[in-house]
Design a protein around this nucleic acid. Structure first.
Length: 274
DNA sequence: ATGTTTGTTCCGAT
DNA sequence: CATCGGAACAAACA
């Protein structure tokens, strides 16, 4: 489930809590598979130290002192939890990584109900390749409106679909893209080829604004609690959704329309999104 | 029982 | 060969 604000929250909390820790052990649930394989994964992790925690698009990327990188992609239902080593196993727990420094012993746990998530260890070259496959990050990189427009126009599809394409711009998911289009008063089925500079500028501004707001609210947690932070706490951005999940447009009170656009549930106001 | 779901990748059609 | 749309991945929930 996590989109940029949720992944950002996890990465920044992890940064404060596990940088400098040594990796003492790795436990992988029976049948669960990681990259490149479970044996090499464990061997490369155990005995190394965590240098830096960061994010590449929606991947959590952890740099080790060995020069290798540990990555997590949470997909729809992945969770990263920082627990006491003695705390009981979490639901859908797939991996436990034991960490320690002078003051504490911790367990970093990866859990995933639907198992669309991905976990692995990679070398520097592979991480370079990972970074290269994504478009500019909506928060960490400066994107000029003209560039944003050209990138969107490079794909001949609906604006909603193009926004979700991480190779075009990185960070938006279904919820934030839906709200960004509402903020910019753009119909989600608008063809990318019909974009002009004014609408592209509005959309870029809206997307950055909604993602920034999401970060301030520590992400959005839906009723199923697929996303919680590393301490198991929900975010609060769900209280600030603009049109996602709404029945009436907050701007003009028109009844909200819901339809699948390129396979994803999309809410929009038929009156003010043109 | 059926239709949903926050993401991404792959396959078939064009 | 390149591009696009949709299915598929798997599980929980209403």
């Amino acid at each position: 489930m996590p989109e940029l604000p949720e992944v950002h929250t996890i990465a920044s909390d992890l940064k404060k809590n596990i940088e400098g820790c040594s990796i003492d052990g790795v436990e992988i649930e029976n049948g669960y598979k990681v990259n490149p394989n479970n044996k090499d994964f464990s061997q490369k992790l155990v005995g190394s130290r965590i240098d830096k925690v960061g994010r590449v698009s929606k991947n959590i990327v952890i740099k080790l002192n060995s020069g290798d990188f540990l990555t997590f992609h949470l997909a729809m239902t992945g969770r990263l939890l920082l627990r006491d080593t003695k705390s009981p196993k979490d639901t859908h727990q797939k991996i436990q990584i034991k960490l320690s420094n002078k003051e504490k012993n911790l367990a970093l746990r990866f859990c995933d109900a639907r198992m669309f998530g991905k976990v692995g260890v990679w070398n520097g070259q592979e991480i370079k390749g990972l970074k290269e496959k994504y478009g500019p990050d909506m928060i960490m990189q400066e994107i000029l409106p003209g560039d944003f427009m050209e990138r969107l126009k490079s794909k001949n599809t609906t604006i909603k679909h193009a926004l979700l394409e991480q190779t075009i711009v990185a960070g938006l998911g279904n919820i934030y893209a839906t709200d960004a289009l509402w903020m910019a008063k753009i119909h989600p089925e608008t063809k990318t080829r019909e974009l002009d500079i004014k609408r592209s500028t509005d959309l870029l501004k809206s997307a950055k604004e909604i993602l920034t707001e999401g970060i301030l609210h520590r992400g959005a947690t839906l009723p199923d609690e697929a996303y919680v932070d590393i301490f198991g706490q929900p975010g609060s951005h769900q209280k600030h959704f603009r049109i996602y999940g709404k029945a009436y447009c907050p701007r003009c009170k028109t009844k909200v329309e819901y339809k699948k656009i390129n396979g994803r549930g999309t809410y929009f106001c038929p009156s003010c999104q043109k």
